[in-house]
């Protein structure tokens, strides 16, 4: 019996860092992150199959397959794959096809969670703060955004990768069970919604320049609207746009509607 091969902490850290840095660098329509995934696995493959040319080649070819997920939460998968390859290299009965199947099975659901949390929650909240500071003339806005978002990517992917390695293929069951992820996502959605409400008021900068003059008295339309509810026009535009999307209009179509509306409303002097 050969001695057991174990990936060291250093090798695992290198694998994680390769994934979170270069997993998507050769993004392409044919395999998306396939080459990046293979590059990620090279450290582990060299260690585990370095003494067996044929197994090494098989493993490299196997990990060149089509692969696409979200990078941050998706770090879970190379973690799991490392633990499976390690077990396989030590003679456990793990079919190579099973490893590929796990990759394929996980990439979709993880992208679903990852895209939502990374792009529609963390990104929006941090950007909202950054924009706010930049508009106030504070150069720290963009800097804090870069630092915050990069720290998020590094920390979350590090945790996901090592959790994946620790629990192997059971990790997903572990993480997805008990509705914990659902509860966390929905709670993060609370922050997302509250910031969204704030952004509607802050980011949609439309107002009405209309003014009516009756003899001595002039009436400012925006003033009346403000006295009913501040930021009424931005909220109305947001709700109309949302309804259009909800009815199944494509974002590109809605963009054209908005442009057409802008031409008419601007020329008539109703909106500015």
């Amino acid at each position: 019996m050969a001695e057991t091969k174990k990936l060291t902490k250093q090798e695992l850290t290198k694998t994680w860092f390769t994934w979170v840095s270069w997993g998507q660098i050769c993004y392409n329509w044919e395999r998306l992150m396939g080459l990046g995934f293979c590059h990620t696995m090279t450290t582990a493959i060299e260690k585990l199959y370095g003494d067996d040319e044929e197994k090494k080649r098989d493993a490299l070819v196997r990990h060149m397959a089509y692969y696409n997920t979200e990078n941050t939460w998706g770090a879970l998968v190379p973690g799991i794959v490392c633990s499976l390859e390690e077990a396989r290299a030590n003679g456990e009965d793990i079919d190579p096809d099973a490893i590929s199947n796990i990759k394929t099975a996980l990439m979709g659901p993880i992208a679903g969670i990852g895209d939502t949390v990374t792009q529609s929650l963390v990104k929006v909240i941090l950007l909202g703060i950054g924009i706010d500071m930049a508009l106030a003339g504070n150069a720290l806005g963009p800097v804090l955004f870069i630092l915050g978002f990069s720290a998020y990517a590094l920390i979350v992917s590090y945790i996901c990768f090592f959790q994946g390695y620790k629990y192997g293929k059971n990790s997903v069951v572990q993480i997805l069970s008990g509705g914990l992820v659902k509860n966390i996502t929905e709670s993060l959605g609370v922050i997302g919604m509250i910031v969204l409400g704030a952004l509607v008021a802050k980011n949609i900068g439309i107002s009405s320049p209309l003014e009516f003059t009756f003899g001595q008295m002039s009436v400012n339309v925006q003033g009346i609207l403000d006295s009913i509810m501040p930021k009424m026009l931005p909220m109305a535009l947001f709700l109309i746009t949302y309804q259009l999307l909800k009815k199944g209009k494509k974002p590109m179509q809605v963009m054209l509607y908005l442009m057409a509306a802008a031409v008419v409303l601007s020329l008539l002097g109703i909106l500015a």
Partner: peptide
Amino acid sequence: MMPALGLAMLMQVLNKKTTIPFLIFGF
């Protein structure tokens, strides 16, 4: 006007009955 589109797209992703009250709070 264009930010309305981005924010509406975001609303499509985030929209859940239980979290709508928070949109009002934020506004």
